[in-house]
């Protein structure tokens, strides 16, 4: 029981990280029907930049700087890898180009920070405590809270401000949004900036738990994609539930079977969901008009 509740605690924390990265996928997919295949690398860069900064400044000052860095990085990805491909209507183009940028970012990170996994200081105490019978580490609570807060902030922006509404309008109908005088290209760039910003933020959150290193992004990015698919690429609740399912499935697999297999359930779930209900558990199936 004790073990199970610990597994639950860490599963929820990991799941929320997946949810927040998956949320990033949703943002860019909504505006441009494209995904950043280097999303995991955005997270990794966020963590490593954060690591370099945190030695020189207060943790809470570092956070906004990392987020700003993430936003700029996302905008670069959009301008270099996505926009030309959207213009030439080449799906192959943006898939390959975002992968290529991901590889470059990773290689650059290896050259700057080395190949090792580096410890990341935790801003909160390490002593575990118990909430409702579940053992938690304060960092896990911070991860869960931070992830929820981030998603909430973006949602509020979308619902309350006219620019958020322009974002929603672009997501639902690109051409019509253009007719409303909305600079849809800018909105797409903005969605990439937001997306990478959430990923960088997630990187800083997760790093104290997983260690930070150039390798950390790849699998996280893939599993977050699984979460986005399981939850549905157009469902906000979906990513949170999907994240939780995956996070808990993973920690229990790691404990009861082998840590070597911990990535398997998420990926198998991804394949199953895509084979059975491609719109995701919470997504709406859309009939394609011919």
């Amino acid at each position: 029981m004790d073990v199970l509740s610990q597994l639950l605690g860490s599963g929820v924390a990991v799941g929320m990280i997946y949810a927040v990265i998956a949320f990033g996928y949703q943002l860019t997919f909504a505006t441009s029907r494209t995904l950043n295949f280097g999303q995991g690398e955005a997270l990794m860069l966020g963590a490593l930049v954060g690591l370099s900064l945190v030695g020189h400044m207060n943790y809470w000052l570092m956070l906004p700087i990392v987020m700003l860095f993430g936003a700029v990085q996302g905008a670069v990805v959009e301008r270099v890898a996505v926009r030309p491909a959207i213009k030439s209507k080449s799906e192959f183009g943006w898939i390959m180009a975002t992968i290529a940028l991901g590889i470059i970012f990773k290689n650059v990170a290896e050259n700057i920070w080395g190949h090792d996994q580096l410890p990341f200081p935790s801003p909160v105490s390490q002593t575990p405590f118990t909430v409702l019978g579940v053992h938690m580490v304060p960092m896990q609570v911070m991860v869960i809270g931070g992830a929820l807060l981030m998603m909430l902030a973006v949602e509020l922006f979308n619902r309350r401000s006219i620019y958020g509404k322009a974002f929603v309008a672009t997501a639902s109908d690109l051409d019509a949004a253009g007719l409303m005088g909305i600079n849809t290209n800018l909105v797409i760039t903005f969605s990439y900036a937001l997306s990478s910003m959430t990923a960088a933020f997630a990187g800083v959150l997760v790093a104290p738990i997983t260690l930070a290193g150039a390798e950390m992004g790849a699998v996280l990015g893939l599993k977050a994609f699984a979460v986005a698919i399981i939850g549905g690429l157009n469902s906000g609740v979906g990513v949170i539930v999907g994240g939780l399912i995956l996070g808990i499935a993973e920690t229990t697999t790691a404990y009861y079977i082998s840590t070597g297999y911990k990535d398997v359930p998420g990926l198998v779930l991804l394949l199953l969901v895509l084979a059975v209900k491609p719109a995701g558990l919470f997504g709406k199936t859309v009939i394609k008009k011919v």
Binding site: A97, A100, N107
Partner: peptide, 10 residues
């Protein structure tokens, strides 16, 4: 190497 690789892909 990998950077050159990525640039080549782009």
């Amino acid at each position: 190497r990998l950077t050159i690789f990525g640039l080549l892909i782009l």
